[in-house]
Design a protein around this nucleic acid. Structure first.
Lengths: 194, 194
DNA sequence: TCCTTGATTGACTAATCGCTCTATAAATAT
DNA sequence: ATATTTATAGAGCGATTAGTCAATCAAGGA
């Protein structure tokens, strides 16, 4: 127990086991033992198992958002901002496959209902603003920006699934990612705008 | 027990409960009682709970595929075939929300590993062929057809999420669906082809 | 030094769950 | 009519699990 402090170690272990065996398929006792702590310690930091699951979700989301905030490109034009967001989202996903998979697993589980709507909206606020501003500037197609954002996110998810399922050589991945970004951009961008 | 025979009633009840409470969040005893059968009867038709989950998945997939096969347009040009596939996929999803949600829930669960790869590939064989043929005829962009199929499927998923989350008036849905199909088509189609 | 507070442990429990088993009834075959 | 298989029920069992609890241990403040 040197590098990570205990709550972090518990979360890291829970992530590994959850993606392998599912939420209810992993007993808290196993999380505790594989994390090298006792059963009681786990419940000292997380009152219930559900609370642990939700804490893991928000921790991962925060990590992703912080990463994207660091890599955000504030200088380029709109398209470059979108490209950056797209590129780094995928870079993070490929570097943190379990975590990215977990996000989707969580979204299709009843645990999603335990997170307040407000919390969820806040997590994607910055991205929503980006789409809203681009929409107001007529850079995007005249469709609801929420819809275009949803489609873009699912482009990322689909490409992630493709890159992780098929064994695409790592050196081809950046090219593929850029290809799909260009597809996505022509899909959502207003062609009448320079 | 009049309309549905018992295995069907069990599957229908399981679907309702699984999407509400998750796989492990719904005891077999509750499935049985809400389906109006005894615990023993459930295990008479499905040897294990896992087998029940997988049977539900394959039953839903078959129903969806049969529906799409019925609605398939064999006459029109390629784009119209794709439009039909897109449109009816969403029509079915919106008419069978629980079932469509369940498919995704299942895909992000460890139960997916219980289905042989061969079985999964067979389920999307016809659609894969459609993409392959369009690719060979240079109708699609020069990218792997598997990738383009993955992206198209995720367009459907994203639009489904949008239409079910936001309260889009039912009368606007066909328009939105067609909008997004056109986006998808310009995304995957080769513009140099008439 | 004593006291308080938080961290840590692991045995323990109450409840639950998947599944079996025995018994019986219904259907089907011979 | 008899035998054989299938359907149904529901009590019950063994195993597992989330969460508790009483007992130490460590750290720091007064």
């Amino acid at each position: 127990m040197s590098k990570l402090d205990k709550p972090e170690k518990i979360l890291a272990t829970a992530l590994k086991l959850f993606v392998a065996y599912g939420f209810h398929g992993t007993p808290t006792s196993r999380i505790a033992s594989e994390a090298g702590v006792s059963n009681g310690t786990l419940f000292h930091y997380f009152k219930t198992k559900d609370e642990l699951v939700v804490a893991l979700y928000t921790a991962i989301k925060e990590e992703l958002n912080q990463y994207l905030a660091e890599k955000a490109n504030e200088t380029g034009d709109v398209k470059e901002k979108f490209r950056n967001l797209f590129r780094y989202s995928l870079a993070w996903a490929l570097e943190n496959r379990d975590a990215f998979y977990f996000i989707q697993q969580f979204h299709f589980s009843p645990h999603l209902g335990l997170v307040p709507d407000e919390e969820i909206r806040k997590q994607s606020e910055k991205h929503r603003n980006l789409f809203q501003e681009a929409h107001d500037a007529k850079v995007l197609k005249p469709l609801p920006p929420d819809l275009l954002m949803m489609l873009s996110i699912n482009q990322i998810n689909g490409l992630f699934q493709y890159l992780t399922a098929q064994t695409v050589p790592a050196e081809n991945q950046p090219q593929r990612i850029n290809d799909v970004f260009e597809l996505t951009w022509t899909m959502i961008a207003n062609p009448e705008k320079p």
